[in-house]
Simulated assay, not measured.
Amino acid sequence: MSGTPAGVSAPVLSIRGASLQRDDRELWAGLDLDVAAGEFIAVLGPSGSGKTTLLRSILGLQPLSAGSVTVDGTAARRGNSRIGYVPQQRPLPPDTSLRARDLVALGVHGIRFGLPIPRRGDRARVDELLKGVEAAHYADRPVGLLSGGEQQRLRVGQALADDPVLLLCDEPLSNLDLANQRAVAEIIDRRRRQHDTAVLFVTHDINPILDRVDRILYIAGGRFLLGTPDEVLRTEVLTALYGTPVYVFRTGGRLVVVGVPDAETRHEHETSATQGPGTGTLPTGGAA
């Protein structure tokens, strides 16, 4: 199946012939992926399957074992301002002295020698970003006293400081309650819709973003599948991918995946990838 949606040219992200090895074990190989402007791609798979390493390669922080990565027509490199990065939510210590606006300002100031010297328009830009992530009302509060969801909104604001064309999200909803998962997902998706920003979103749980996703890249068992949610999230497709019975159910508007090896009986699974060479084939049509 082609990695490029029909009729799309000049992708924001283009990956060709990518492979990844770890400790003499091939995690996956032969990945071709084009991500168009404004497209939302979810990256799923068990822990250890190379999802975060893929993001690090796009950021120019870690080379792939083979293949090429280009962002906005330029080879992947460290410090590319055309890419925004939202990490997993990890609480900041309560005694952190930074205010909310200071955390967002780190993205606006960028990397400078010595202490950051405010530039004309910096404060206005910080205020704009705070408003965009619905954090203006706590802009002057110490970040250590904010909730996990409030802190994560600031990380999204920081990632958007350079007006990126590609937003990489590495488990950004982990450790958040359901209400904050929905709020942060909506902020990211609104950015995509309003600015045509491409989004590559690594997650263990597809449910909070399921209605926003255009395509899914599912990596497991040394293989990968690429397609729409209805194409990928099917019992027979995931069973073939894992090489063992896996069942996909829809209940109460949510997806539940049962039978993932060594995993909990829900979609936000945590397990090491089983070994197996090659890439999967993707049947088309039909919902789970």
Rank of each mutant, 00 (worst) to 15 (best):
P5T: 13
A6M: 07
A6I: 12
A6Y: 05
G7W: 02
S9K: 07
L13K: 07
S14T: 03
S14A: 13
I15R: 09
I15S: 10
G17K: 15
R25I: 12
D32F: 03
D32R: 04
D34P: 05
D34W: 02
V35M: 05
A36Q: 07
V43P: 04
G45Y: 04
G45F: 01
G45E: 06
P46N: 07
S47D: 13
S47L: 00
G48C: 09
S49G: 12
S49L: 07
G50S: 09
T53E: 03
R56N: 13
L61C: 04
Q62H: 11
S65L: 10
S68R: 14
T70V: 12
G73I: 03
A76L: 10
R78K: 14
R78S: 15
R78H: 10
S81L: 13
I83M: 05
Y85G: 09
P87K: 00
P87H: 02
Q88E: 12
R90Q: 13
L92E: 11
P94A: 09
S97H: 05
R101Q: 06
D102H: 07
H109G: 14
I111K: 15
I111D: 13
R112Q: 15
P116V: 08
P118W: 04
D122A: 05
A124D: 14
R125N: 01
L129K: 13
L130F: 00
L130N: 06
K131R: 15
V133I: 03
A135R: 05
Y138H: 12
D140M: 05
L145G: 14
V156Y: 07
L160P: 05
P164E: 10
L167C: 00
D170F: 04
L173D: 08
A179V: 08
N180A: 11
V184I: 10
E186V: 00
I187A: 01
I187H: 04
R190A: 11
Q194L: 15
H195G: 02
D196V: 03
A198F: 06
V199T: 00
L200I: 13
F201Y: 14
V202R: 11
T203F: 02
I206V: 15
N207W: 10
R212C: 03
V213Y: 03
R215T: 08
R215N: 12
G221S: 15
R223V: 00
R223S: 08
F224W: 15
F224Q: 10
D230P: 01
E236D: 15
Y242V: 09
G243D: 01
P245Q: 10
V248C: 11
V260H: 01
A263N: 07
T271H: 05
G276H: 01
G278S: 09
T279N: 10
L282D: 01
T284G: 02
T284W: 00
A287Y: 08
